[in-house]
């Protein structure tokens, strides 16, 4: 006879398999769809050249402008966001008690920011640019984007820092270390894998966002060469091409979406690979 416990276990196992399969199917089918639909337009030329005249009507060229633009705006936004997130998170976890009222309020605000749609950040950034008469540019877009990804970065870093054993801090303080020394000699080392994850998550989110940069970074057919000029990005590149009535151009849209997806996959893969060497000294 099969006991109730065994049946329970079976059911959970089956549920687990179902959810895992759904997840795998989702991932594989997304990649497959964009790949199949964009296959006709995928070529080296597309990856390594910029749009020529009439590109969006089916003319010659490629999307190098958007690939490099996305990498540029994603990296700059991630760097900026890292600077604020790092300060915030070390302040609320090392310089203040992590459970203090102040630290909890900061977390609460970050959670609210997390929930705000990125188009609102875009509108906000655009509003400020209008006031100060700043034209749409790589810098303006990266600044706006840095705020979109700040909550993800800061909260992920925060969770990592909160996982650090209290005894580890006690041990370091008892040796006479200052908060600063503890931060950079102990906490960063212990938290490194988590900090890296936070950075990559934020970069991934940033590189895929379209709404916040639509008005602030605008779009251009040339390569990103100046912080003060508009910049092309992959999400917008996908959007513009998919919204044309031409089959050919739509196909290029899917190809661009495929490139974007592969870029994200590469980033996570690199992260996984580098993880091991960074977590060598982490105390489990």
């Amino acid at each position: 006879m099969i006991s109730a416990k065994k049946i329970e276990e079976k059911i959970f196992k089956i549920l687990m398999y179902i959810s895992f399969s759904l997840l795998s199917i989702a991932l594989v089918s997304i990649i497959a769809v964009v790949f199949v639909k964009g296959l006709g337009a995928l070529s080296f030329k597309m990856l390594f050249s910029v749009p020529q005249g009439g590109y969006y009507l089916g003319g010659e060229g490629g999307i190098l402008n958007a690939i490099l633009g996305s990498i540029a705006i994603g990296s700059i936004a991630t760097l900026l966001s890292f600077l604020y997130a790092f300060c915030i998170v070390f302040y609320i976890n090392v310089y203040r008690f992590s459970k203090s009222q102040f630290s909890r309020s900061v977390r609460f605000f970050l959670d609210i920011l997390w929930g705000i749609p990125s188009i609102v950040y875009g509108a906000f950034g655009f509003g400020i640019m209008l006031i100060f008469k700043i034209p749409a540019s790589l810098l303006a877009g990266a600044l706006t984007l840095s705020f979109v990804i700040l909550p993800i970065m800061a909260r992920t870093m925060d969770e990592t820092l909160r996982m650090i054993p209290f005894e580890m801090k006690q041990a370091a303080y008892s040796l006479g270390a200052t908060r600063f020394e503890i931060s950079y000699k102990v906490i960063i080392k212990q938290a490194f894998p988590g900090l890296l994850t936070a950075i990559l998550l934020a970069f991934g989110r940033g590189i895929g966002d379209a709404a916040s940069i639509l008005m602030t970074a605008s779009y251009t057919d040339s390569l990103p060469t100046s912080l003060l000029r508009p910049v092309a990005t992959l999400p917008l590149c996908v959007f513009f091409q998919l919204s044309t009535p031409f089959k050919e151009v739509q196909e290029r849209g899917y190809a661009a979406a495929f490139v974007l997806t592969i870029l994200m996959l590469l980033v996570s893969l690199l992260a996984r690979l580098s993880f091991k060497s960074f977590s060598k000294y982490v105390v489990k």
Partner: peptide, 22 residues
């Protein structure tokens, strides 16, 4: 001066807590 004070004392905790390094 906490740094001077703490330098005067070595502390062993209940659970040995090594630091994340060699």
């Amino acid at each position: 001066d906490l740094i001077v004070l703490r330098k005067k004392m070595g502390l062993l905790l209940q659970k040995p807590q090594v630091l994340p390094m060699s």
